[in-house]
Design a protein around this nucleic acid. Structure first.
Lengths: 228, 228
DNA sequence: GTCTATAGCCCGATAGAC
DNA sequence: GTCTATCGGGCTATAGAC
């Protein structure tokens, strides 16, 4: 994903050609990453409107005025967070459409990748979920151009596998269920912790999640027995 | 659910015993319902912090000062919305634990009820989801006391059915998947509409959702063949 | 690049006339 | 119960000294 939202003008302003440039650029990049990381957490916790620039700045260890030297506006910072999360997600997912494995195995890995993303980047997942649930008013265009085509292709691929086998469940809804279930291990972690009584979610917990969800998907395809 | 958050003091102030009382009380109740309905929509669209009292008042057709005559604070209004949604949800769900049907049939009805709730009250579902995803900072206590016990019981019931049959998937994660998938038809409706290209979700769409999800659950239990 | 100061705005909530 | 008026506060964003 491109970095359109970055403050290019300021980068261009750092005197080019001097020996100090790369070092300064490095520091700037590091600081940007710190800010983006904290922004992701704060936006996930409080939503776009609930989060304040001060909150994020304090978490990143600088003043809000200083933060706004690196990012031109709260809105731009928010979009960068969403861009980075979406970018990471698209890179992490091995699309069903581009896999040359047999379908049950491809689905198994698909579920694993999505589940691992929820675990590795829960705050990012939650920021994305908050945006979509609230109607994606700020981000609908990006979703339409970057997410929807990938998902449509995956559904079509799954459908092409299912049809000759006369599987009668819907490929579309099967994919919806996979997204929803895997996503929920980031989004609803709070509620899961309350139900299980655990304060954090362990390796074993996620392994069970993966196993159960895989059995559900393969079970619906009528090949549960082939997956033990 | 009780109505602790209602402005009892004002109700008590309406001169009791007169013929006009019931009519006035009726109007008040109606107006309260209008406000609550609009509040649910606005909170779902913008979150607690993004929503303003003015937004809700305008949607309900009164001034914000007038709205705050009926609800003492934005916070109280928000909690009433969540209370009402949770109340409705608990009444709508025929808990697995209290069903005397055979398990596959009980699960089928459970999925149907949850799916119907997502369809009937999408805004309420989304307000609840936004609250949980953001860490349920305002509502954790209510979830702990009213939601978690029900879900724990359902998981235990399902587990008691699974164990003698040596089903090796996890009852806990099976239930998590059911909640997540059914909930997503309210929460991620926007994204689903973008993927399917439809502007609204039809009867047939929900029927397919129900069928597919049921097959997934029963398939994981190894009784897919018993469900046609 | 990092400060202080502040503009400009909108918010939730209250007071009080009618 | 419904108005007008307003207070006090927090917010994003900008200006300008250093």
């Amino acid at each position: 994903m491109d970095r359109t939202h970055r403050t290019r003008s300021i980068e261009a302003a750092t005197s080019p050609g001097s020996a100090a440039v790369s070092r300064r650029a490095r520091l700037r990049d590091d600081l940007e990453q710190v800010i983006l990381g904290e922004a992701e957490r704060v936006f996930a916790d409080k939503g776009f409107d609930g989060a304040t620039v001060s909150d994020i700045a304090e978490a990143a260890g600088l003043s809000k005025q200083n933060l706004m030297y690196y990012f031109p506006s709260k809105q731009a910072l928010y979009e960068r967070v969403l861009d980075d999360v979406l970018d990471d997600w698209l890179r992490s997912m091995n699309a069903l459409a581009h896999s040359d494995l047999p379908m049950p195995q491809a689905l198994r890995l698909y579920i694993q990748a999505k589940l691992e993303f929820s675990r590795r980047r829960p705050a990012g997942s939650r920021v994305y979920a908050l945006e979509v649930i609230s109607g994606a008013k700020q981000y609908a265009q990006q979703i339409k151009s970057k997410v929807v085509p990938v998902l449509r292709k995956d559904i079509a691929t799954l459908n092409r596998w299912m049809e000759p086998r006369q599987v009668k469940v819907s490929a579309e809804h099967l994919m919806f269920a996979i997204w929803a279930a895997t996503q929920s291990y980031a989004d609803f972690a709070t509620q899961m912790q309350l139900v299980t009584g655990r304060s954090s979610l362990s390796d074993a917990f996620f392994a069970q999640a993966q196993e159960t969800l895989t059995q559900m998907v393969l079970g619906a395809l009528g090949s549960a027995e082939a997956s033990a």
